[in-house]
Simulated assay, not measured.
Amino acid sequence: MVRIAPFEIEQWMDKYETTPGVLNIAETCAASVSIDDLVGLCEDKDAPGPLTLSKPMTYGAIRGSQTLRERIASLFDRVSPSHLSADDVIVTQGAIAANFLLFYTLIGPGDHVICVYPTYQQLYAVPESLGAEVSLWKLKQEQGYVADVGELEKLAKPNTKMIVINTPNNPTGSCIPRPVLEAIVAFAKGRGIIILSDEVYSPLYHSLPHGKEAPPSILAFGYEKTVATGSMSKAFALAGIRVGWLASRDKSIIEAVAAARDYTTISVSQLDDQVAAYALSNNVLPALLRRNMELARTNLALLSGFVTKYSSVCFWEKPVAGTTALIQFRNKGRPVEDPDFILDVLSKTKVFFMPASPCFGLGNDFKGYVRLGYVCHTDVLKTGLAQLGQYLEQHLL
Rank of each mutant, 00 (worst) to 15 (best):
148 D>M: 01
148 D>V: 10
148 D>G: 13
150 G>S: 04
150 G>A: 02
150 G>D: 09
151 E>C: 10
152 L>A: 06
152 L>T: 03
153 E>I: 12
153 E>D: 14
154 K>V: 01
154 K>Y: 04
155 L>E: 01
155 L>T: 00
156 A>V: 12
156 A>M: 03
156 A>D: 13
157 K>N: 13
158 P>G: 03
158 P>E: 12
158 P>V: 01
160 T>K: 06
160 T>I: 01
160 T>F: 06
160 T>V: 09
161 K>C: 10
162 M>A: 13
163 I>P: 00
163 I>C: 05
164 V>Q: 04
164 V>M: 03
164 V>S: 02
164 V>E: 07
164 V>H: 08
165 I>S: 01
165 I>M: 08
166 N>D: 06
166 N>R: 07
167 T>D: 07
167 T>Y: 00
167 T>G: 05
168 P>H: 06
168 P>L: 02
169 N>E: 03
169 N>S: 10
170 N>H: 07
170 N>K: 15
171 P>D: 13
171 P>Q: 11
172 T>G: 12
172 T>S: 11
172 T>Y: 07
174 S>K: 02
174 S>Y: 01
174 S>T: 12
174 S>N: 14
175 C>L: 15
175 C>S: 12
176 I>S: 04
177 P>C: 06
177 P>S: 07
177 P>T: 09
178 R>S: 15
179 P>Y: 04
179 P>A: 09
179 P>Q: 11
179 P>N: 07
180 V>A: 08
181 L>N: 05
182 E>I: 05
183 A>C: 06
183 A>G: 14
183 A>P: 11
185 V>H: 02
185 V>C: 00
186 A>I: 11
186 A>M: 07
187 F>C: 08
188 A>N: 04
189 K>V: 12
189 K>R: 15
189 K>I: 13
190 G>N: 03
190 G>Y: 13
192 G>Y: 11
192 G>C: 08
192 G>D: 14
192 G>Q: 10
192 G>M: 11
192 G>T: 10
193 I>N: 01
193 I>S: 03
193 I>C: 02
193 I>V: 15
195 I>W: 00
195 I>K: 09
196 L>C: 09
196 L>F: 00
196 L>E: 11
197 S>K: 05
198 D>E: 05
199 E>R: 06
199 E>G: 00
199 E>T: 02
199 E>Q: 04
199 E>F: 00
199 E>S: 03
200 V>I: 12
200 V>Q: 14
200 V>M: 15
201 Y>M: 10
203 P>S: 05
203 P>C: 08
205 Y>C: 00
205 Y>L: 14
205 Y>Q: 12
206 H>P: 00
207 S>G: 08
207 S>L: 07
207 S>H: 12
208 L>I: 09
208 L>M: 08
208 L>P: 06
